[in-house]
Simulated scan of single mutants.
Amino acid sequence: MTDAPELDGMDLDCALGGFRDMLATDGYTLSWSLNGENGVVVRIVAGEDACADCLVPLPVMETIMSNALEPTPYTLDHIVLPSGS
């Protein structure tokens, strides 16, 4: 995970942390990186015991992540899902 500057008490780890924890319970790892100045690339990787049916469709995931980033100066660039998702 990339360290982001403090954002008025809310950094990217805080903005995406709840989703990272939720996905971890289903066997996925969420990480992020910055693409340019304000774009965030979210990567979701399936672990060995990941629940294949637990990920929502990409358009829903994009809405969820975009909403999570609203309190920050960052926007969602794109999401990289595991192969076959």
Rank of each mutant, 00 (worst) to 15 (best):
G9S: 13
G9I: 09
G9Q: 09
M10G: 00
M10D: 03
M10H: 02
L12K: 00
L12A: 00
D13Q: 10
D13V: 06
D13E: 14
C14K: 10
C14G: 09
C14S: 08
C14N: 09
L16H: 00
L16P: 01
L16V: 00
G17W: 01
G17V: 02
G17H: 02
G17I: 00
G17D: 00
G17L: 00
G18Q: 03
G18L: 02
G18P: 03
G18R: 00
F19G: 03
F19E: 15
R20P: 00
R20Y: 05
D21I: 04
D21A: 11
D21H: 05
M22F: 14
L23P: 04
L23T: 02
A24P: 02
A24H: 04
T25V: 05
D26E: 09
D26I: 03
G27I: 13
Y28K: 01
Y28F: 07
Y28I: 02
T29Y: 06
T29W: 05
L30K: 07
L30Q: 11
L30W: 08
S31A: 14
S31I: 11
W32K: 08
S33H: 13
S33R: 14
L34M: 10
L34Q: 10
N35R: 12
N35H: 09
N35D: 07
G36A: 02
G36K: 01
E37Y: 09
E37D: 15
E37A: 14
E37L: 11
N38A: 12
N38C: 09
N38R: 11
N38L: 08
N38H: 15
N38T: 15
G39V: 04
G39A: 05
G39H: 02
V40T: 12
V40C: 10
V41A: 04
V41E: 08
V41I: 14
V42D: 01
V42R: 01
V42C: 03
V42G: 03
R43G: 12
R43K: 12
I44N: 04
I44A: 04
I44H: 03
I44L: 11
V45D: 13
V45G: 11
A46Q: 11
G47S: 04
G47V: 02
E48M: 09
E48P: 10
E48V: 14
D49S: 12
D49N: 15
D49H: 13
D49E: 13
D49R: 15
A50K: 12
A50S: 13
C51M: 10
C51R: 14
A52W: 09
A52R: 14
A52H: 09
D53C: 10
D53G: 13
C54T: 07
C54F: 08
L55I: 01
L55D: 01
V56Q: 15
V56H: 15
V56Y: 15
V56I: 07
P57M: 13
P59L: 08
V60K: 15
M61S: 13
M61C: 11
M61D: 06
E62R: 14
E62D: 12
E62V: 05
T63M: 12
I64K: 03
M65R: 05
M65Y: 12
S66W: 07
S66Y: 05
S66G: 14
